[in-house]
Structure formats: structure tokens, C-alpha cells
Amino acid sequence: MTGSPLSRQAAGAENILSDQPLQLAELLAASHHPGAGAVVLFSGDVRINNLGKEVAYLEFEAQEKLAVKMIREILDQATQKWQLNIAVAQHRLGKVGISECAVVVITASPHRKEAYDANRYIMDRLKHEVPIWKCEYFTDGTHKWGGNCNCAEITGNPAEHIYEFNSTAHEK
């Protein structure tokens, strides 16, 4: 190890929610750490097809104060759980076009397993728990508020989710 702290904030990662295009290359460049042998970047991009229809664009909104607080907590928990060197998440608000990045998660750790696992954990919790919503606008003129998280229909509890990631990873 160098004299660097085990973990730190990547430069440019302060704005967790942004109505401007996310700067993936700059974020990635700022996410290298002398203690990290693995850096994983996940970009959630806007897809042109959904529900059998052509998507024109998405529009995101959030309960911003709560969303930022919850994302910070998720990043902190992941950092502690996997001893990450870097944990970054940024999400777009407003109108986002096809192939643009709607959300980015970057994790850096000494070895790749931790960076991959932590990245999926952060993304999974972000999609299910954080108060951010998308509205899909289709080229046929219709629109639909997204329903990524329909867990309450199964669990009967809006606070109880079914995660893609191994549920044991969500122990706090």
C-alpha cells in the first residue's frame, strides 16, 4: 500500500443526481486507486425497445433529498462490506435519449470479485429502493411510468424486495 487511504471519493462523483449527460470517461479516469487491482463500471443505458414498442426517450424524476441520502448510504454500506477503494453512483434526471447513460456505478477493489459483486449490489438496491422513477415515452405518442420494482405485488410489503443479487449480500 501507498500512503493513500483505503477508500476515497472519486473526483467528479459528488453530484449523485444530474440533469446533464454523465461523464463516464472522466468518472472512470478518476476511479483508479493505488490499492485497487480491479475497477468495474456499469452503465445503465436507454434501450430503444421496451414492451414491444419503440422508445423515443425516457424522463426521470426523483425525491431528490431522499434519493441522494439513500444512494450515499448504499455506497457506504457496499464500501464497508467489500472493503472497496472506490464506490461511485450517478443517476440522470430529466430527459435521457436512446443509448445515453441513465445510471453509472463504478466500484474499485483489490480483486475483481469484490468489485463485480459490490457493483451488482449497489445497482440492485438502487433500482429497488431509491426513490427515482422513469417515464418511458414511445414513438407512437404514448407514455408509461416505469415499474422496475413490482416486488410489493409479491411480498405484500413496499419495503421488502426481491433482488437479482444473492439475498445474503443484502445483510447490513
Binding site: P131, N148, C151
Partner: peptide, 23 residues
């Protein structure tokens, strides 16, 4: 975030939060 038994006060500011669909 609060539970269903949270006692409301007149000056509370309440957000009603549908299931998330970010990402």
C-alpha cells in the same frame, strides 16, 4: 422514510413514494 404508524404533525412535509423505477 416512516412507517404506517408514524404520528403526523400539522407542519409535516410528506412525500408519497411509488415503487422505484430508476436505473
Amino acid at each position: 422514510l416512516v412507517g404506517s404508524h408514524y404520528n403526523l404533525k400539522a407542519d409535516d412535509r410528506i412525500s408519497v413514494i411509488p415503487p422505484s423505477s430508476g436505473g
